[in-house]
């Protein structure tokens, strides 16, 4: 992984069209700004992961053993 050190207010480029700004550095949070073309998808990792889990849930709903699941949950 490439690692770059930046101070608040500084930025860097990815290709020529995407600029990432470090706007503010707090004690446990960094505020980041992104200038990018509209077609570049930007998503917090938690959202991406949730999307993945939602798809897994749907997959699992297609083949789950519901009778067993209901029994297990009732006896939980």
């Amino acid at each position: 992984m490439l690692i770059i050190s930046r101070k608040s207010g500084e930025s860097f480029f990815i290709n020529d069209s995407i600029e990432i700004f470090v706007l503010d550095v707090g004690s446990d949070r960094v505020k980041i700004g992104i200038e990018a073309p509209k077609n570049i998808k930007i998503m917090r990792k938690e959202l991406k992961e949730t999307q993945k889990i939602n798809k897994e849930s749907l997959e699992s709903a297609n083949k789950a053993d519901y009778e067993n699941l209901e029994n297990v949950m009732r006896n939980k």
Partner: peptide
């Protein structure tokens, strides 16, 4: 939302991304 694997004991739920519903207004979001 749950992911239900073949081995039920390995089932997981997503506590961080709940489906939140206002039943009165019939509105929801994840």
């Amino acid at each position: 939302i749950a992911v239900v694997p073949n081995v039920i004991k390995d089932m997981t739920v997503n506590l961080k991304s709940p489906i939140v519903v206002n039943l009165e207004k019939r509105l929801a979001m994840q």
